[in-house]
Write a protein that binds this DNA or RNA. Structure first.
Lengths: 326, 326
DNA sequence: ACAAAAAGTGGTATCGATTTCAATTGCAGC
DNA sequence: GCTGCAATTGAAATCGATACCACTTTTTGT
């Protein structure tokens, strides 16, 4: 494969000049044309590894999520990638499966890649331990943060969204409301807090259960819960994955919603409006989350010293049949 | 950030020796320990750009799909990435949105990255023009190929799968069967072929329509089709995205399945068994597709001269309520 | 005990680009 | 026609690792 020296020779100029053509440096039009012709003739492709080594910027960011198969992360990552490529940056995607060991391993990989920055949806264990200074690159957290995170972040207003769902259920006449949350992320914790507060304010009990963030775990938990004598009239489910599990559970138990139990949740996945009269959910602004995270990362790179910034986005309550009054 | 020279100095050895520790070269245990201690002390991270430049292997592959939000590609890409990381390789993911310009651009990028190889789901335009010789790396096509593709490939037996669906519908008593296919990929073409052959064999007409591969286009087309007087009794839909569109169309037209129209399709997405008595579909072995593609790429890299190989995987017919006899 | 082979280590060139600095060219002003 | 300044261009150093070769030390076989 042709290298810069070959192009230079073919065009009768020095490698420096070819490099300047590549990087839009000061080159006369005549020479530029000649060099570009030579590049085309030789089918030249600049070697990005060499370029990155010499120039010391990789134009690459890392995107670390728990599982790209979770439609929330799929959508966010697509938005991140679009925005990244639009700014001439490459993305390295990593799936941690909520496994702290993998998180650590991928953070290390990001250092070896000398990425410019990282967008990260950390587990509860990881969120506290992030030290941008030690890492050597800025981090923008998404989806999950805790109070004393020291990085930029883009998150949903989880408390409010959960409270909104509870408020809606109360308004519809439900009083006995249960909540199902993921046990690995701060998102679950936050949503639980909003859930509890809202019910407490109404002087109602707030029975909650926490499960591993998988369809199966949720299905299991809901099946069991609804078989108990004091089963809730309504169920609030903390994310799309768990919601799917809950739906499966209701279906296999032969329960209908909202007649047997009302069902509301998070994440407006494609199937939520196809089931019966639809599921009431809070929709997350997935594109905006991804785009904003990428934008914030770029801003932080331009202005390393600016103060920490947390963007809180609002969800959108989508009311459908699953929360109609019983 | 510490470099190899710093580690060498700290450990009192030469850079060569540090490099050998890094690459599991021949080093005495005593020295290895000392070097590893120095690495830990300095928090050393090898610079991958430098390593790639010098060693001339990037341990990186490209994965080019049309849209990661299509659950089929999400699942495949997750499988590819797992298999890649398991083999110490990195993955660069690109979304082409079925746009040939983007395809060309990303192939160019792959050359600049000097990737070891590429796994690629090309559009119909691109599939013919792939020349591994010119690209400089081997390509494994997935999902979509045409007869004279000159690369390794992993595909579903699309003809047979479509024929299987048709056979099932015939067995259930349906005679007037319509097919809806995507118009950008060879997958659509192949599935259409299987569909046509199967119906022709039964001496039946094979009315087919082709649409852009989007939910909206499918919804539109199905709405229109079912409003016509000679509407089909059963609909075969060529992939999960179009199937979602079809379901939306039926729902908004107030039609039930299979009573008003039977519905069968491809891709066993999470929601297909949640709707009424479920949708009858052919499930693609998504994990196997991804894993196999990655494996084939690795094999090809080990043995560049071996003959072209196309792995054809079988789908699994999942019969559900949407194809019950009317 | 000695020769031969193997193992371990260091020095230096090199991967392919960009960067820095110095040299050259072109052009305006006088 | 000459001087001075800006615009181009080239030469050489450099990014941080690995590869290759040469050299020393240890091990093995007889």
């Amino acid at each position: 494969m042709a290298k810069i020296k070959d192009v230079a020779a073919a065009a009768g100029v020095s490698p420096s000049t070819v490099s300047r053509v590549l990087c839009n440096g000061p080159v006369s039009d005549k020479v530029r044309k000649r060099v570009e012709a030579a590049m085309a003739r030789l089918d030249y492709r600049p070697n990005l590894a060499a370029r990155r080594l010499r120039s010391q910027h990789t134009d690459t960011i890392g995107l670390i999520v728990s599982d790209i198969r979770n439609p929330f992360f799929t959508a966010v990552s697509r938005a991140v990638e679009d925005e990244a490529y639009r700014n001439g940056m490459r993305v390295i995607l990593c799936n941690t499966d909520e496994n702290p060991d993998k998180e650590a391993m991928y953070l290390r990989l990001m250092q070896e890649e000398r990425v410019t920055g990282v967008i990260f949806a950390p587990t509860r264990q990881a969120v506290a331990g992030i030290d941008q200074q030690a890492l050597g690159f800025p981090v923008v957290m998404i989806d999950r943060i805790n109070a004393d995170a020291a990085t930029d972040a883009v998150v949903l207003d989880n408390r409010r969204a959960a409270a909104q769902l509870v408020g809606h259920l109360l308004q519809q006449g439900y009083r006995h409301i249960g909540g199902l949350f993921g046990n690995t992320s701060n998102t679950g914790t936050e949503r639980h807090a909003g859930f509890s507060e809202a019910l407490q304010q109404a002087s109602l009990a707030a029975p909650a259960r926490f499960v591993a963030p998988s369809v199966e775990a949720a299905e299991q938990a809901v099946l069991q819960w609804l078989a108990e004598p004091a089963r809730p009239q309504a169920l609030l489910v903390s994310n799309g994955v768990l919601l799917l599990g809950a739906v499966r559970a209701l279906k296999s138990a032969g329960l209908r919603w909202p007649q047997d139990v009302a069902l509301v949740g998070f994440d407006n996945e494609v199937w939520t409006d196809l089931l019966g009269d639809g599921l009431t959910v809070v929709e997350q602004p997935v594109n905006e989350i991804g785009r904003t995270a990428m934008t914030m990362l770029l801003e932080r790179l331009n202005e390393p010293e600016r103060s920490q910034r947390i963007v809180v986005l609002q969800g959108r309550l989508v009311v459908r049949g699953s929360s109609l009054p019983q």
